[in-house]
């Protein structure tokens, strides 16, 4: 379960202070999905980064509860946040989702290897086959199309079955067909596996697939 209350996040630009997130609260139950929409600069990516523990919030509380494991992000130090990310969070970016020096299969296996979970090796192959990439396991990412790369990224995020998937505009760079395909794989597989998904998107189609929808306003100076 994800619980955020009274979250604030500001950025400084010289003398100006840009208020990106202000008094934000939300709650997401396990296995549910949430779509974050809003104009550019409204704080969608910032919220995802705060939830992943990549950046600290300025005020408010962020709590993640995964079964027996509870994390109060605002009280945790960096090393603990890194450990939490490694075990409980899957992340999908819009661009450059893959490590260019690892093959498709190695990219998918990466989170499992970070967790020393070699038993997931075969699952990685199965997932990639299910995602239509069975013939491209040993190629490097630069030979894949954008849609294929994003499917690999989704497979990687799902492999270790982390209870929370964070996706930052995962289809923002794709055509309509690929958007539909990636959205189907992300939401369908997550639902099958019982994983929570929070996705930041401009796409109404993606937002429509989520169980909940949160629209963020623009930043204030």
């Amino acid at each position: 379960m994800v619980r955020v209350s009274g979250l604030e996040k500001n950025y400084r630009d010289g003398d100006r202070q840009i208020k990106v997130l202000s008094d934000l609260s939300l709650e997401l139950r396990a296995g549910q999905s949430l779509a974050l929409t809003g104009p550019s600069g409204s704080g969608k990516s910032t919220l995802l980064n705060v939830l992943a523990g990549l950046i600290p919030s300025d005020a408010g509380e962020v709590a993640l509860c995964f079964g027996q494991h509870n994390f109060a992000l605002h009280q945790m130090h960096e090393a603990a946040l890194t450990r939490m990310r490694r075990h409980y969070i899957g992340y999908v970016y819009q661009f450059f989702n893959l490590v260019p020096t690892l093959t498709v299969l190695e990219n998918v296996r990466l989170p499992a290897r970070l967790n020393k979970a070699k038993e997931l090796d075969q699952l990685a192959v199965d997932l990639l086959c299910d995602f239509g990439l069975g013939a491209r396991l040993d190629v490097f990412p630069h030979v894949l199309s954008g849609g294929e790369q994003q499917r690999v990224a989704v497979a990687r995020a799902l492999l270790a079955k982390p209870p929370l998937i964070l996706a930052d505009e995962p289809t923002g760079n794709l055509d309509v067909d690929n958007t539909a395909r990636v959205a189907q794989l992300l939401f369908g597989t997550a639902k099958e596996m019982g994983l929570s998904v929070i996705v930041a998107t401009h796409s109404e189609e993606i937002a429509g697939r989520a169980d909940q929808h949160l629209r963020l306003g623009g930043p204030s100076v």
């Binding site: 990549l54 890194t82 990310r85 450059f96 990466l110 989170p111």
Partner: peptide, 14 residues
């Protein structure tokens, strides 16, 4: 830079 950011998001420590 980008793959480093990705690795950090995946839980690679300093």
């Amino acid at each position: 830079q980008v793959s480093t950011k990705l690795l950090v998001a995946l839980g690679v420590s300093h």
